[in-house]
């Protein structure tokens, strides 16, 4: 099978597309090291804005809040999303499948203002005080679908005979899941966790609706100052956020490589 040739037109499309995606972000990072207070005039290399960030107490507090919410909600979303993916792949057609997939996939595309408003009204109706846990619940609801899709794609491709072999050798279903299935889908579960983590860490809209006093997240804080205009300090904060996410991605890539190879060796021997 010969693939269609990669033409100069393809090359130009790719180069322009990647430039379009990366140049704006590169400018933010570059100008976070700008010594000048003027945002678009280069005034020499400086790290003064990063220093200013370190002295900014509300910002550090918001970053800590965001981090805690992201850890809690992505852990919950990974658990629920993996269960949902397993149910959809291993249990074929059940009666409420249409309703279930509808509820699962809708939050992925549903405009966030609607999800945010409806969750807030639920919390008010239940008389819950808004804060850390209400934002965590909102983020879990949004992100568990993303985990489910990532894990589902992996489960569909998984060789079922491995689970059946475990069952034939006397493993109970739960034991077979924990010792055979889970290690094999671990890279996808890890990727799902990471995706959920960054979605939560970056979210502005759901958090604005569902957070209360004392639980301002980092994007909420950045948003309130972005509205007033572009400042070098926000450039520095944005660059740190991007660097943090890039580090997580790199760690995930290294981890899934090692795990993937290990799993391949194990199933190759088996």
């Amino acid at each position: 099978m010969r693939r269609s040739r990669f033409t100069w037109f393809n090359g130009v499309a790719l180069a322009l597309g990647l430039a379009f995606l990366y140049v704006p972000l590169a400018l933010v990072v570059l100008y976070s090291f700008n010594g000048s207070r003027l945002v678009t005039v280069w005034g020499g290399f400086s790290t003064r804005w990063y220093g200013a960030l370190l002295a900014n107490e509300p910002l550090k507090e918001a970053a800590w809040t965001s981090l805690k919410i992201a850890v809690a909600s992505s852990a919950l979303a990974t658990l629920l999303g993996t269960l949902a993916a397993y149910a959809l792949v291993r249990h074929g057609r059940f009666r409420s499948r249409t309703l279930f997939t509808g509820m699962l996939y809708a939050p992925m595309v549903m405009p966030e203002v609607i999800t945010g408003l409806s969750l807030l009204l639920l919390f008010v109706a239940l008389g819950l005080e808004r804060g850390f846990w209400t934002v965590t619940v909102a983020h879990t609801t949004l992100t568990l679908a993303f985990v489910a899709v990532v894990v589902q794609a992996r489960l569909v491709d998984l060789d079922r005979t491995l689970e059946e072999a475990a069952a034939d050798l006397g493993a109970q279903p739960v034991a077979a899941f924990l010792t055979v299935t889970l290690p094999l889908i671990a890279p996808a579960v890890g990727a799902g966790f990471l995706l959920a983590f960054t979605l939560s860490f970056d979210d502005l809209v759901l958090a604005s609706f569902t957070s209360g006093p004392g639980s301002t997240t980092l994007p909420m804080l950045i948003y309130s100052s972005v509205r007033l205009g572009v400042t070098p300090e926000i450039n520095a904060a944005s660059s740190l956020m991007m660097g943090f996410v890039a580090m997580l991605l790199l760690a995930a890539a290294v981890m899934s490589r090692r795990r993937g190879r290990g799993a391949a060796v194990r199933s190759g021997r088996g």
């Binding site: 704006p24 972000l25 400018l27 933010v28 100008y31 945002v39 678009t40 995706l195 960054t198 860490f201 970056d202 502005l204 994007p219 950045i222 948003y223 972005v226 205009g229 572009v230 926000i234 450039n235 944005s238 956020m241 991007m242 996410v245 991605l249």
Partner: peptide, 14 residues
Amino acid sequence: WTSLLIRVYAWMAI
């Protein structure tokens, strides 16, 4: 994977 807020902010500066 970068925040939508930051990506939109980048265009404000441009």
